[in-house]
């Protein structure tokens, strides 16, 4: 069947099997691999995206259900140029670093949540990060001045195995403060 979804403001159309998950559509049809498979059982939150502004676990939604709707992924968060940094098929990539300024990206082009995650060390392996960012983006839009407990509750559906969560919670509170201005 034909499915067309507007992803980060860009319409993406594809001919897909009707069993195709939204996660697979985003990754394999749109080629945006920032949403990740951590369980495919709607538990870990690594695949979280915004569907018409609401957080969904994209492994729990069929692409067909998102037909004609708007999806935002982590790739849509930053406003500047954030093209892929390296090609891991030609070299080991962990630790590869290009200063933001050298790539024409200044730190201001990151979303305040991305910036706060960076400053507070709120990611280690980074596998959970995209889902965390999108869940928090939606949450802070609803609750701009949350308590720590509210942030923790909002993240109930997003697992992180690396950070112990404190740095993520701290980054969320910092970003919230900055976003309130």
């Amino acid at each position: 069947m034909k499915v067309e979804i507007t992803i980060n403001g860009r319409p993406v159309a594809g001919e897909v099997d009707e069993r195709t998950l939204l996660l697979e559509f985003v990754r394999d049809v749109a080629g945006l691999t920032g949403a990740r498979n951590g369980c495919l059982e709607a538990r870990c939150g690594c695949c979280s995206v915004l569907l018409d502004g609401q957080v969904v676990k994209s492994c729990n939604v069929l692409a067909a259900q998102a037909d004609g709707r708007e999806v935002e992924t982590v790739e849509g968060l930053a406003t500047g140029d954030t093209t892929t940094i390296e090609d891991p098929t030609t070299e080991g990539s962990v630790g590869t670093y290009v200063p933001l300024s050298a790539r024409g990206v200044d730190e201001g082009s990151l979303h305040p949540l991305q910036q706060a995650f960076h400053e507070r060390g709120a990611l280690q392996c980074g596998y959970c990060t995209a889902g965390m960012l999108l869940t928090l983006k939606e949450f802070l839009a609803r609750v701009p001045d949350p308590t720590e407990a509210e942030v923790r509750e909002a993240l109930r559906g997003n697992l992180c195995r690396c950070t112990g969560y404190q740095s993520i919670v701290d980054a969320a509170l910092l970003a919230a403060e900055r976003m309130r201005g």
């Binding site: 945006l32 691999t33 920032g34 949403a35 992924t73 982590v74 790739e75 968060l77 930053a78 954030t82 093209t83 892929t84 940094i85 390296e86 090609d87 891991p88 990539s93 590869t96 670093y97 290009v98 933001l100 990206v105 990151l110 991305q114 995650f117 960076h118 990611l123 980074g126 990060t129 995209a130 960012l133």
Partner: peptide
């Protein structure tokens, strides 16, 4: 950066 922007492979 790559992890925050979803471009890490």
């Amino acid at each position: 950066l790559a992890l925050l922007t979803g471009t890490a492979v």
